[in-house]
């Protein structure tokens, strides 16, 4: 059957404004949106640019805005959308577009990096000869955050980032930090909590829950952020802006 995709195009060498191109591709309902994009690039228009790698939702390369919602192109199938109509393919919101569906992820990776304390703290002060012990329950406290694949879908979906506070550190960076803060082995959890309290940090989150809605790995992102806030209130002086 024929599927119609309306695709955002922007060529920085030629265009002042972005525009949309419409493509029709032959595809089955159970094919990935990524497969459709590849058919366009390999059979119709080799200039269409988008990122991809693993093609099964674990590397995080192909975060896009599909029918106005952040998603991974390799994790969404044609049948996940009303394919009797056009499927709208756009780059992730919030980020600057470099070309077509490719966005500049520098602010994303900079933020993920910024939550790491400057001095390596792990391994913990005392290094046992074998592994440090951690109970199943302790391990479960940060299990959900480990699912994050750093795709950036949550940034494109977050109303705070997109509309209110460009400088907000963002859901994925908080999640990354939450993973360490709630890991019983982390020696510098308090220092990390302080990092979370910096301006545009954890308190900038207004719990819109959009990160949770779009997360391709079904992580309860907002809940993780709320748990971090609660921990600050319990263990430190909250510095709400």
């Amino acid at each position: 059957m024929k599927v119609t995709l309306k695709v955002y195009r922007f060529n920085p060498e030629a265009d002042i404004e972005p525009h949309y191109d419409t493509f029709k591709v032959e595809a089955e309902p159970n094919e990935r949106i990524l497969d459709c994009l590849n058919k366009i690039r390999w059979q119709q228009d080799s200039t269409l640019s988008f990122r991809m790698s693993c093609a099964h939702g674990i590397c995080g390369s192909d975060g896009l805005t599909i029918n106005s919602q952040s998603a991974l192109a390799c994790q969404k199938l044609v049948e996940d959308y009303d394919y009797t109509k056009e499927i709208l393919i756009e780059p992730l919101k919030y980020f600057d577009v470099l070309k077509d569906l490719i966005v500049d992820l520098t602010p994303f990776f900079e933020r993920v990096k910024s939550v790491n304390p400057k001095t390596p703290s792990s391994p913990a002060n005392v290094e046992p000869e074998k592994e440090r012990l951690q109970s199943i329950e302790e391990r479960s406290r940060f299990d959900d955050a480990l699912k994050c694949i750093l795709c950036g879908c949550c940034y494109g979906a977050c109303p705070v980032m997109v509309e209110q506070d460009q400088e907000f550190i963002g859901p994925a960076a908080i999640l990354r930090e939450q993973r360490y803060i709630f890991d019983s082995r982390t020696a510098d959890a308090q220092e990390r909590l302080q990092v979370m309290q910096k301006p545009h940090g954890v308190w900038a989150c207004k719990s819109y829950y959009m990160c949770t809605v779009v997360c391709p790995k079904n992580i309860k992102v907002t809940e993780a952020i709320l748990r971090t806030k609660k921990k600050i209130i319990k263990e430190q002086q909250p510095k709400v802006e």
Partner: peptide, 12 residues
């Protein structure tokens, strides 16, 4: 020791 979050058994 670097921090890899291995799954744990009942003994930790």
């Amino acid at each position: 020791h670097l921090g890899v979050p291995f799954s744990r058994n009942a003994e930790g």
